[in-house]
């Protein structure tokens, strides 16, 4: 049996709309947050869980962490049913919500951790060892006596991670962990997650809108839309499927004009830069380069890396999300 098993999960929410004239009760509307979602995750995997807003990502995380009960379907994490065995289950998981804090606002973070230790019944020796490890990996050593409210957003997120991991959970849910962080903080955070995953074999399920998080961390992604699972597999394969165009930016030594660009590519000009968009399956990159050299003396030429955000946007569009 896999570490996380999810089978035909369904969840509907009932929303009451605003009452209109002549209606006695506010009309109800049912919204399917999850429809027949199934998947398996093995121990030690680092899985990205993506989809546009309202796709059902948070609902899945809430069900798997025991906050919500599904309408139908089965799920188990390490042999436990999250909503039925809540206390036993949550002892073994950690959850970080990017926009919500679980630490106490006005006290030094060390005090928050000490209280969490109490809540999770972590034995003293294990706590000391784990804290040593985490404070070093998350560079929290100097911040332990600082109240949460005085920390920067990046420091705060590191403290949150420490709080969610100090009871050494075997599964970690991350909901938008890098939201609002600066570049350095994001990199530190990603490095840490890789370290935690490799070091302890912690299974990590990551929901995010930041595609760089996904490319940096996850080899496997699941795509969710309108409550259905639309894709589950290798990230590279998913990208290849929608990676249908390349962009080249070129500069020439001299003014060039009226070049015969190949059929089917788009050319724009931005100051000295020529920006050429083409589909590699129609025009091989080698041919494209040859044509560009014929046009004049190339001073500089860059092939832009695939823009993951754009790919995903295209994918969402094509899947009609």
């Amino acid at each position: 049996m896999a570490f996380i098993e999810v089978e035909n999960l369904n969840k509907q929410f009932i929303i009451r709309k605003k009452r209109e004239k002549g209606q006695l009760m506010r009309p109800k509307e049912e919204i399917s947050a999850l429809r027949e979602v199934s998947f398996q995750v093995n121990q030690g995997e680092l899985v990205g869980y993506i989809g546009p807003n309202g796709a059902g990502k948070s609902t899945t995380v809430k069900i798997l962490s025991g906050i919500l009960t599904p309408d139908s379907g089965r799920a188990s994490v390490d042999g436990l049913v999250p909503w039925a065995d809540r206390k036993a289950h949550v002892r073994r998981i950690g959850v970080v919500f990017g926009q919500r804090s679980q630490l106490w606002w006005d006290v030094p973070i060390a005090d928050s951790f000490a209280l969490l230790k109490e809540i999770y019944h972590v034995p003293e020796a294990a706590y000391q060892a784990r804290m040593g490890e985490l404070t070093e990996a998350l560079q929290l050593g100097d911040l332990m006596r600082t109240p949460l409210r005085l920390l920067s957003l990046g420091q705060r997120m590191r403290a949150e991670l420490c709080g969610s991991l100090l009871h050494s959970p075997s599964l970690l849910f991350l909901d938008e962990p890098t939201i609002g962080l600066d570049a350095v903080s994001k990199l530190t955070l990603r490095e840490f997650l890789q370290w935690e995953n490799r070091q302890r074999g912690t299974t990590i399920l990551l929901t995010t809108h930041d595609m760089e998080d996904i490319t940096a961390l996850c080899s496997r992604v699941m795509v969710l839309g309108h409550g259905r699972k639309l894709y589950d597999g290798e990230l590279t394969e998913l990208l290849a499927r929608y990676d249908t165009e390349r962009i080249i930016t070129a500069r020439y030594e001299e003014e060039i004009s009226g070049t015969a660009w190949p059929e089917g590519c788009q050319v724009r000009r931005n100051g000295e830069n020529w920006i050429i968009t083409y589909a590699p399956e129609k025009i091989p990159t080698a041919e494209m380069m040859a044509r560009m050299q014929q046009a004049g003396h190339l001073r500089e030429c860059t092939v832009q890396p695939q823009n993951v955000d754009r790919l995903i946007a295209r994918m969402y569009q094509e899947m009609e999300l």
């Binding site: 809430k62 906050i67 949550v90 002892r91 998981i93 679980q102 809540i119 999770y120 019944h121």
Partner: peptide, 11 residues
Amino acid sequence: GQLDTLLLRPR
């Protein structure tokens, strides 16, 4: 939503 956070703890 703080109640959610409480549900995530084994107490």
